[in-house]
Lab assay of single mutants.
Amino acid sequence: MGFKLLSKLLVYLTASIMAIASPLAFSVDSSGEYPTVSEIPVGEVRLYQIADGVWSHIATQSFDGAVYPSNGLIVRDGDELLLIDTAWGAKNTAALLAEIEKQIGLPVTRAVSTHFHDDRVGGVDVLRAAGVATYASPSTRRLAEVEGNEIPTHSLEGLSSSGDAVRFGPVELFYPGAAHSTDNLIVYVPSASVLYGGCAIYELSRTSAGNVADADLAEWPTSIERIQQHYPEAQFVIPGHGLPGGLDLLKHTTNVVKAHTNRSVVE
């Protein structure tokens, strides 16, 4: 069995187990497998329904001669939608809004960016022009300005110390501490036991640490421990890039980060 097929099978099995364990909360999309990078042309966006009122959005972007996937989250909030992270750029984010209108038909009224990198804030200006209120932590807003990236308009308070959590509509926002970046936030959907790890969490097929220019490698494993301790009931975990899975993604990420750190020390 090929690795790609095995990865998709694991996603399907995880979703099936969740649907059985929580039949009222989960209505997993039966329309197909989780979209992969090879299936999404740059400039297009796919939506994948995880649970009743919960979707991931998947886009792709060219970077350094390669094409990478990027995940975000959409959560229903009454007759409105909360968006977590842009679709990595203005063109993708405009396509995301169009796809949401086509498939869901509810307005996106608020959006949260989970850290300051372009795959999370690139497209904020498109959201703002569409009347979406954009939010991020003060740290993310400051770092985005320093980096020359787009800056969300509103500040999220109460997320300055490791372990801080605040309720934001249908989700809980959690600051686990520094990891992929010093400002990275985690998003949890309690009604569906869905954990969105953003770039602080890796997919299972990833074996290298990737972009760690703004990471705190020493603190990252401790931050992941905080996530595990705060959300032990999480059933569906979405990484910032690639295929979702279960809580095993947290341990896998820790292993990859520690291996990278150990290699760096040896070198």
Rank of each mutant, 00 (worst) to 15 (best):
G2E: 13
L5F: 14
L13R: 07
S16A: 04
S16G: 13
I17V: 04
M18I: 05
A19L: 11
I20G: 07
A21R: 07
A21V: 08
S22I: 15
F26S: 07
S27Y: 06
V28L: 07
S30K: 12
S31K: 10
G32N: 05
G32T: 12
S38P: 05
I40V: 07
I40L: 10
I40S: 12
V42L: 06
G43I: 10
G43V: 09
G43F: 05
L47A: 08
L47H: 02
L47Y: 00
I50V: 07
S56Q: 04
S56W: 06
H57R: 02
H57Q: 11
A59R: 03
A59M: 09
A59F: 02
A59C: 06
A59D: 10
T60L: 07
S62A: 07
S62T: 08
S62D: 06
F63R: 05
D64W: 06
A66K: 07
V67S: 06
V67E: 09
P69G: 07
P69C: 06
S70N: 07
R76A: 09
R76P: 03
D77K: 09
D77P: 01
G78N: 14
D79A: 12
L81K: 00
L81H: 01
L82E: 04
I84K: 02
W88A: 01
A90P: 10
K91E: 13
N92Y: 03
A94Q: 12
L97Q: 04
I100T: 10
K102E: 10
K102A: 13
I104C: 00
I104D: 00
P107E: 11
V108I: 14
V108C: 03
T109A: 12
S113M: 05
T114K: 00
H117K: 00
D118S: 12
D118W: 10
D118L: 11
G123L: 03
D125L: 08
L127K: 02
A130C: 15
A130V: 06
V132G: 01
A133Q: 11
T134N: 05
Y135N: 06
S137D: 03
P138W: 08
P138H: 04
R141P: 03
V146W: 12
V146N: 06
E147F: 15
G148M: 05
N149K: 09
E150G: 11
S155K: 14
S155R: 08
L156I: 15
E157M: 15
G158V: 14
S160F: 11
S161L: 12
S161I: 11
G163Q: 14
G163W: 13
A165D: 15
A165L: 11
A165E: 12
F168W: 14
E172N: 15
L173Y: 02
F174W: 03
F174A: 10
F174M: 15
F174S: 10
A179S: 12
H180Q: 02
H180C: 00
H180M: 00
L185G: 02
L185W: 01
V187F: 01
Y188M: 08
A192K: 14
A192M: 08
Y196H: 04
Y196I: 02
G198L: 02
G198K: 00
C199V: 00
A200M: 05
I201F: 05
Y202D: 07
E203S: 14
L204W: 11
S205T: 05
R206S: 12
A209C: 06
A213V: 12
D214H: 14
D214W: 14
L217K: 04
W220M: 04
P221M: 13
T222E: 10
I224H: 00
I224Y: 00
I227C: 01
Q229F: 14
P232E: 11
A234V: 11
I238H: 01
I238S: 01
P239A: 12
G245V: 01
G246H: 09
L247D: 05
D248M: 09
L249R: 00
K251E: 06
K251G: 14
K251A: 08
H252Q: 15
T253Y: 01
T254Y: 07
N255G: 14
K258G: 08
H260T: 12
H260F: 15
T261N: 13
T261I: 13
R263W: 09
R263Y: 15
S264G: 13
S264V: 14
S264L: 13
V265F: 04
V266Q: 14
E267A: 05
